[in-house]
Amino acid sequence: MAPLTQTALTVVTLAVMLLGLAGLILVIFPGLNIIWLAALVYGLITGFDWVSGVLFAFITLIMLVGNLADNVLMSTEARQTGASWLSIGVALVAGLLGSLFFPPFGGLIAALVGLFIIEYIRIRSWRQAANSMRGMALGCGWVVGVRIFFGLVMIFIWGMWAFIL
């Protein structure tokens, strides 16, 4: 590949990854998936060898763990405040739908409102429902930090691949 083309590809890939990283601030935005997809496209264009394949496998593993941690942290915080699994499930579905129809914050708002409504119907206490909603919101806060950490690690690994190897 010509040096100018390689440089352009690297700059575009890094820009997409940084966009994905910035998007991780939004709880419902799939920033880790965007960073992963940028690394995949980079690998498909430049070609994979044994070392880059291993690095991409690590990037993939981190993306999967990060996406799983996302749901686990939000659910755990809500569950610790007494929220039912039904409420958490409704919140996750509402969050997905809200993010599709009302981005960028519709998903977060829909998840919290969905959790509150189901919890209020279930236990008839707006205070306890609000407490469960607060727990999920706290979990969302933790998720942002964890996702940014995972995103930075993914970009660092890609950087080793692109700039050192």
Rank of each mutant, 00 (worst) to 15 (best):
G95W: 00
L96W: 07
L9A: 08
F48G: 07
I157W: 09
I117P: 14
L61N: 10
L152F: 06
Y120N: 15
W36P: 02
F102V: 03
N131Y: 11
L108R: 01
G43K: 09
T7S: 08
G135L: 06
V41K: 01
L44A: 14
F102G: 01
G82K: 03
V12Y: 10
S75G: 15
T60K: 13
R124Y: 05
T76W: 12
R127N: 12
I118V: 15
V143G: 02
F105D: 02
V90T: 06
M74N: 09
F101H: 02
F156K: 04
V65G: 04
I34C: 06
I28R: 11
F116D: 10
G89P: 01
L92Q: 08
R147N: 15
Y42P: 03
I117G: 14
S125E: 11
V113W: 11
L86T: 15
S99G: 01
P104C: 11
F116W: 14
L73M: 13
T76G: 04
A69V: 12
Q80M: 13
S132I: 03
L26D: 06
M74S: 03
L138N: 11
T5D: 11
L165R: 12
A111H: 00
G141Q: 00
V65F: 05
A129I: 04
Q6T: 14
R147F: 03
G43W: 09
S87P: 07
E77L: 01
A130I: 08
T7V: 07
M74H: 09
A137L: 13
L61A: 15
R79L: 07
T46S: 09
T13G: 11
M136K: 06
A69Y: 12
A69C: 14
F156I: 05
W126K: 15
W142N: 13
G98S: 01
I59D: 07
L100P: 06
R79K: 15
M63K: 08
V27W: 11
V51D: 15
M133L: 14
C140Y: 08
L9Q: 10
A69L: 15
L108C: 10
G43C: 09
R124T: 06
T13P: 09
R122V: 05
F116G: 06
I35A: 00
G106F: 05
F116P: 09
A57R: 12
S75I: 03
A111D: 01
L9N: 04
M1E: 06
G82P: 04
G141K: 04
A78E: 02
I62K: 02
G89K: 00
E119W: 00
S52P: 02
W142Q: 13
M160N: 08
R124N: 12
T81N: 15
V113T: 13
A22T: 11
L32W: 00
S84D: 01
I123C: 15
P3V: 12
A8D: 10
F163K: 12
R147H: 12
T13M: 13
G23M: 02
V65Y: 03
G141W: 02
A39T: 12
F149M: 12
G53Y: 04
G31Q: 05
G98N: 01
